[in-house]
Design a protein around this nucleic acid. Structure first.
Ligand SMILES: [Mn+2]
Ligand SMILES: [Mn+2]
Length: 597
DNA sequence: ACCCAGAATG
DNA sequence: TTCACACCCTCCA
DNA sequence: GAGGGTGTGTCTCATTCTGGGTCT
């Protein structure tokens, strides 16, 4: 059981003004003096063409043997185009949709847009329609190119004024299709005169993007942001050994995954049958990179089936997801269905080999409450939930709302003890120092880890074997923690040499020298080692969940404080960290804030 | 005449 | 493909 | 109190342009 004590938030505390030492979170960019000033950076007029060519070349260099003949021809044919045509094609391809009207195109760096379009049409990179009417006849979506007034001009009927654009389009398309003279008032020729382009090659481009980035959420803006100096990436070596994809089959599975995601859309809109069919088509035998995505996808699908009230049918989908919280969901379902024998077996497996500390914490909390029939298991989990130490702090609701609950607590603490430092740093500090000390590990150039220039992290960062295949650099990083002086040296060395470079554990804007200095001087290397060991056990789930505040008492040492407002409770990853704090004998408390009546 | 969201831009 | 919190609901001891 | 759902602020690169939708 955790200790409980009460302390009141006195009036004098409110009137105090020694707020200076209570940090407000994230003074953001203010401190990042070495951030580049983008205003001074000029991009060449055809920067986008350079970027596009870079992708084509990079993909060819790394994945040539994986491309189909058609995909290879795509690049060859593109390279054979005139520069104007290349520019126009890239411009159009990088915009939303595949329909465009030429009268709206305005690219000063392209000398003759119409000629470029003609060339692209001749080489089958797009199709030209000479009027809006012809385009709409080909594909109704082309009507969306025209403004609401332009669409309305096709209709001479009454009541047109008050209709939305969508309603107008619906009328035009519905009535326009049937030739019945009943609706002769629809006249697509009233659309303004313009050529209309339909761009081809989006699928090929998607394949190139997928091969280049290894995902589909990054795009050409990465180039721009880097070249403007807004993002900076570590400069790791990329060679042909470092490719992420090694076979056509692997690529096809990735494509299939993204097709399924795309087809599914918002899972909430699907009925159980549709969800099960999607799940059915998700590949099970894949590489580690894709497995993370599919297993999360499967868990999302199963969760949605569960929400639809068909928990029983979600079980088989959960069973295919081998990561937290799939087994938690299964156990909850089995217990609620009273399938206790299966529940017992699953719980025993989880107890023996938990996926993660989160799952373990769930088990400790759940089994004694909901599986009392299994006395044996309850007994063995008697390590018990040892509730974290907890204090209650009472303050006026207005004060909490004015500052936000975490800063309000920080202010009240520094008012009570003006010589203490209280920082609101949440996940800034511990993961941040980890990112500094283990920088050589994170950016160790293992084959397959880095395959394009815009990676914040190695591709396998969250894989089980991440550290196993990096033993040498791992040991070197641990060695830095052998003494206080080597530790500090490592921290400041990386801090100075890598400042501003993207790292999944570091938010440079908030990780100031002042915070680091305090933390390094107050937290022993032994404690840091314990924290980092836990982080390394599960980087994905332990990189967040650290307490809101860290307090540095005037008398020395430190204490971690998680602030909980009324109605808020510890989250899963926070429980996991608190359990670890207890094991490591690290001082940590929950501060529950109550409103003063 | 305004407001606003999304797209485009570098 | 961020993370944490506020606020709502139901269920249940 | 636990759990779930949903929304929100914060992250977001900053700025301009376009168009749809309001209101007056
Ligand atoms: Mn927090
Ligand atoms: Mn908190």
């Amino acid at each position: 059981m955790g200790s409980q004590s009460e302390s009141n938030f006195g009036n004098d505390a409110l009137s105090g003004s020694s707020a200076s030492k209570a940090a407000s979170k994230v003074d953001s960019k203010a401190e990042s003096s070495t951030t580049f000033d983008p205003s001074g950076v000029e991009l060449p007029p055809k920067y986008y063409l350079d970027n596009f060519r870079f992708v084509l070349d990079h993909v060819r260099a790394l994945y040539e043997d994986i491309l189909t003949a058609q995909e290879s021809a795509f690049a060859d044919d593109f390279n054979a185009l005139s520069e104007d045509a290349q520019c126009l094609y890239v411009r159009l391809l990088s915009r939303r949709g595949d329909w465009f009207r030429t009268d709206k195109l305005n690219y000063s760096e392209i000398s003759d847009i119409n000629a470029a379009a003609d060339e692209l049409a001749a080489e089958e990179f797009l199709e030209i329609f000479d009027s809006g009417a012809e385009a709409v006849q080909q594909d109704a979506a082309a009507l969306g190119l025209f403004t609401r007034p332009e669409v309305a001009s096709c209709l001479s009927g009454k009541g047109v004024r008050s209709l939305s654009k969508a309603a107008l389009m619906e009328r035009v398309l519905e009535y326009g299709k049937e030739d019945s003279s009943e609706y002769e008032d629809v006249d697509l020729k009233k659309l303004p005169p313009t050529r209309v382009l339909c761009v081809f090659g989006e699928l090929e481009m998607e394949t190139y993007r997928l091969l280049f980035f290894g995902n589909l959420y990054q795009d050409f803006t990465e180039f721009v942001l880097r070249d403007l100096g807004l993002y900076r990436y570590e400069d790791y070596q990329i060679d042909t050994d470092s490719r992420w994809c090694h076979s056509r089959e692997q690529l096809e599975q990735q494509v299939l995954y993204y097709e399924l995601r795309n087809e599914a859309g918002d899972l909430r809109d699907l009925v159980t049958e549709a969800l099960l069919q999607i799940a059915e088509r998700v590949p099970d035998e894949t590489d580690a990179l894709l497995r993370r995505r599919t297993q999360r996808f499967l868990a999302d699908i199963a969760r949605q089936i569960e929400r639809s009230g068909e928990a029983e049918r979600s079980l088989s989908v959960y069973e295919r997801s081998h990561r937290h919280p799939a087994r938690e969901r299964r156990l909850r379902i089995l217990v609620s269905l009273n399938r206790l024998q299966e529940a017992d077996q699953l719980a025993a497996t989880m107890a023996e080999r938990p996926y993660s500390e989160e799952e373990h914490q769930f088990l400790l909390n759940f089994v004694p409450r909901k599986m009392k029939h299994n006395a044996g298991l309850c007994e063995s989990l008697i390590e018990k939930t040892l509730a974290p130490a907890q204090d209650i702090l009472t303050m006026p609701a207005a004060y909490r709302l004015e500052h936000g609950v975490e800063p309000a607590v920080a202010l009240s603490l520094t008012d009570a003890h003006p010589e203490d430092h209280v920082l609101y740093c949440e996940n800034l500090l511990v993961p941040g120092v980890f990112g500094l000390v283990f920088w050589p590990l994170l950016f160790d150039e293992v084959p397959g880890a880095f395959f394009h220039p815009f990676q914040i992290r190695p591709a396998d960062l969250y894989d089980e074997e991440f550290t196993a295949v990096r033993q040498t650099s791992l040991e070197a990083c641990w060695a830095a923690l052998d003494s206080q002086s080597s530790f500090e040296k490592a921290v400041w060395n990386i801090y100075d040499s890598k400042f501003g470079i993207a790292n999944p554990f570091i938010h440079w804007g908030g990780l100031t020298k002042e915070i680091l200095e305090l933390a390094l001087s107050r937290v022993s290397t032994e404690v840091w080692r314990g924290l980092f060991r836990f982080l390394l056990k599960d980087l994905r789930n332990h990189k967040a969940g650290l307490p809101d505040l860290i307090r540095f008492p005037a008398e020395g040492g430190f204490e971690l404080l998680e602030v909980k407002g009324p109605g808020d409770t510890l989250q899963k990853n926070q429980k996991a960290w608190f359990a670890e704090f207890h094991r490591l004998a690290i001082p940590a408390r929950v501060i529950r804030v109550k409103d003063e009546p």
